[in-house]
């Protein structure tokens, strides 16, 4: 069978969701941000809630997320996305509201807003991209940078005694009664993308049922910041990031999973 006979509309099995705009993504080659964007948009498409959804973009690499996500969106100041989302959700309690934030935004400058939005049980969804580095500003140390990891502001590796410990915000947030669904996923392999998408769906379904704050952390790569080829950065992530940031559900339906 000739390839031309296969490429027909009736044989289509996968194409980019129209909820992603046609604008080329501003991210580096191989960056997980694009995949993370897409699964969020696919979930919104599949739930049929595009007209009821308002997103909040952060400051960081995904500062322009609103250029790519085809829903009503607002750009927040650095770290304040959960507060901005709180303001929107309190004004429109019937709409779906989500934030999309990196580790510097959520776990450093925005720690207070994140923890208090979670503790109030704001009925919003947070998509949290953790790549252990400040990508946009050129690869500085993030709150989630691993011990020994080299960045432009920890050029000899993160030294815990003077630079502090990598912060597991997701485990911390799972302890709060205001969170309902808390999970850690990744998007580096097809299997993981499909799992992460199911998690994003569960998070939005949780919001639909007014169950409280839902959080999907996505451990991702930053090949530019880590100074690696994209595929190599994914391998490095599996080997080094996952042992410290293990994948899987941490809290489901308001109950901590296993020994969390």
């Amino acid at each position: 069978m000739d390839i031309k006979d296969i490429i027909k509309p009736e044989n289509l099995v996968y194409q980019k969701t129209p909820l992603m705009t046609d604008k080329p993504l501003s991210y580096c080659p191989g960056c997980g941000h694009g995949t993370a964007h897409r699964i969020v948009m696919e979930v919104i498409e599949e739930m049929g809630i595009q007209s009821e959804t308002i997103g909040v973009a952060p400051v960081g690499c995904s500062v322009l997320a609103y250029d790519f996500m085809n829903v009503d969106m607002v750009g927040a100041s650095h770290g304040r996305a959960p507060a901005v989302a709180t303001g929107i959700k309190r004004c429109w309690p019937e709409k779906f509201v989500y934030t999309y934030q990196g580790d510097g935004d959520l776990a450093a400058i925005g720690t207070a807003e994140t923890i208090h939005a979670a503790n109030r049980g704001e009925n919003i969804t947070i998509i949290f991209i953790n790549n252990g580095i400040y990508g946009m500003t050129g690869g500085q140390m993030a709150p989630t940078t691993l011990e020994g990891m080299k960045t432009s502001t920890s050029p000899y590796g993160r030294e815990l005694k003077s630079m502090g410990n990598p912060l597991k915000m997701t485990e911390l947030l799972a302890q709060l009664p205001g969170t309902c669904y808390v999970t850690r996923q990744s998007v580096h392999s097809p299997r993981n993308v499909r799992r992460a998408k199911k998690a994003v769906r569960a998070a939005f379904e949780s919001q639909k049922e007014n169950k409280g704050l839902s959080l999907v952390e996505i451990v991702s790569n930053c090949n530019s910041g880590w100074k690696m080829e994209p595929v190599a950065s994914n391998e490095w992530m599996v080997e080094h990031m996952f042992p410290f940031y293990p994948l899987g559900d941490i809290k489901v339906d308001g109950k901590l999973v296993n020994n969390q």
């Binding site: 289509l12 099995v13 996968y14 992603m20 080329p24 993504l25 991210y27 097809p190």
Partner: peptide, 25 residues
Amino acid sequence: HQDACVGCANCAVVCPDGVITVYKV
């Protein structure tokens, strides 16, 4: 490889830039 593709869509699912469209028969 024109013949080896089974249309599993793994490539498209994992593509960060969403540039791959997949067909299957």
